[in-house]
Design a protein around this nucleic acid. Sequence first.
DNA 1: TCCACCGATAGCCTGAAACTATTGGACCCC
DNA 2: GGGGTCCAATAGTTTCAGGCTATCGGTGGA
Lengths: 320, 320
Amino acid sequence: MQQPQLDLRVLQYFVAVAEELHFGRAAARLHIAQPSLSVQIRKLEHALGTPLLLRTSRSVSLTSAGDVLMGEAKRLLAAAERAVSLTREVASGVRGTLIVGFQANAAAELTPRILAAFKNNHPEIHVQMRSFDFADPTAGLADGSADVAFVRPPLPAADWLAMETLFIEPRVLVVASSSRFAGLSEVSVEQVVDESFVARKAPDKWRDFWLATQARGGQPVRLGTQVATVDECFEAIMGERGIAFTQASTQRFYDRPGLSFIPVRDVPPSPLSIAWRTDVNDGLAREFVETARTLAAFGGVPNLVDSRRPATVSTSFQSN
Amino acid sequence: MQQPQLDLRVLQYFVAVAEELHFGRAAARLHIAQPSLSVQIRKLEHALGTPLLLRTSRSVSLTSAGDVLMGEAKRLLAAAERAVSLTREVASGVRGTLIVGFQANAAAELTPRILAAFKNNHPEIHVQMRSFDFADPTAGLADGSADVAFVRPPLPAADWLAMETLFIEPRVLVVASSSRFAGLSEVSVEQVVDESFVARKAPDKWRDFWLATQARGGQPVRLGTQVATVDECFEAIMGERGIAFTQASTQRFYDRPGLSFIPVRDVPPSPLSIAWRTDVNDGLAREFVETARTLAAFGGVPNLVDSRRPATVSTSFQSN
DNA sequence: TCCACCGATAGCCTGAAACTATTGGACCCC
DNA sequence: GGGGTCCAATAGTTTCAGGCTATCGGTGGA
């Protein structure tokens, strides 16, 4: 993150001038003197490296850049104000908070719909999405830093953990575009058994699931780089430091030049589940789960393994 | 718009501390001295009226308000940066701009889909949505301040104007909840012919369309308040200064306590069209129209008059 | 031609925010 | 339990960004 070299106050000045198209009136509206305003706008233009306003001694008009900036500035200022009041409301307890843990692309296409529906039903609740890296497959539930989470089983069994599968999608192989596998319409695990695999820095059971050790017929895995996040993973793959399996939806969220996604014949699919803690009685979390279940039943995620699967409740791993 | 009393620089300071959970390291990362940082954070907390960080002499942690603010701050900073680069790109001509005029709720549920699809097909183009009040039913096309526009016919005929209907929806009557009409399942124009109507400050033909003068059987209209925007209109209605007709989709976008929407039996429906200028050869505008047409064919707007209507091209008003 | 309008410039002044040095509380370890 | 270390807070100083007033200069209308 760079220094934004942008000052919201100056942005407000600019919006005032852009709306009034008159430095004098804008200055009056801002309760500052006209010369101060002129100077600030000039500085802003200098900082951006482009004129924003065309002035004659009789009129002021916006350049196209100024026009764009005005729109952006208004949105920014509104967002800033919302941020302030949101923070105040959370602080004062007026507004409750639900922290939703997730990894990578969360529940894929379902995520925005679930969030929209939940916010619609609970406008007084602030939903905080929090991303977790591979080290915690429970996406924050384990240490209580999330109230509810989108997770990908298998998770370590724990009696305080409950989850419900929203959908099941196939896994695909990710390779560098330069790889000899790139462009194949399908591969089998056997074909890639001798390749280096990018491994997730995660609990053994989870790491092994993503290395598909079960499907290798006892063949040991050649380990490539270890990674903590999806981005690191794809970075490693593009750098030809290994290949990896991932859920099919990542192709739709992370596709980029240099990567190639190939269906795999004989790797078990990956469920996407919503999980929560059973040892805290969190009504909001339950409502969120309810919303997620409803939306999942609607469908809308492409390329599922079995879209007719009924929603079922299970405690981690095996049924209870 | 209030003064945001928020400084992006300070927000950046806060994010650094929130991420490092250590004033010394954060200060080093920001290239400032630790005491300066402490002071700024304290000021920020004071301005927001709430503690954001819990400090002991051995550790720093986030309060829930701090947690929320961190998320908001990151989004704000990212948005600020995007605003800067967007403005620069537009200024340098790297990024083209398409200005889309609209009124009220634009193309209703279709709007975000059209925008998303267009942005997907033209990631290098910045789409600027610009709202217009009733005074210009062409939503900026007339004076060239929009390249393409969502409009609601009938428009004044003009040979430089072309348009294409995306969908047609019924019109409904809007009244205050306290009105004797509120709660009726349906009304006829005859029933409300003696009421005061909120009139749009607009060209006669357009104003009359929205007063439904054609459907009144020659009865003159009692004019209530004159309004320039939808918000003003609903404000007037809630203040019982008149009632009005509006397109059905407004109910889904502007519904609020104090307003009541009632289907009307015998008022002609309102088409929503995409319009552009024929006297400038704007490829982007044509592409936008194309996208809109395609998405409209998909449907997805509830409660249409005739969803089987084929897309047809016509110059304003009558066919050409 | 003169005047009114309006943005830019010049010069001054104040306060916000940076810096350095130091204090004071908490934990660790012997 | 006392010395050492870590770390945030406080004190006091300095600098400069941004505000102000006064004025200039260019433009268009009367």
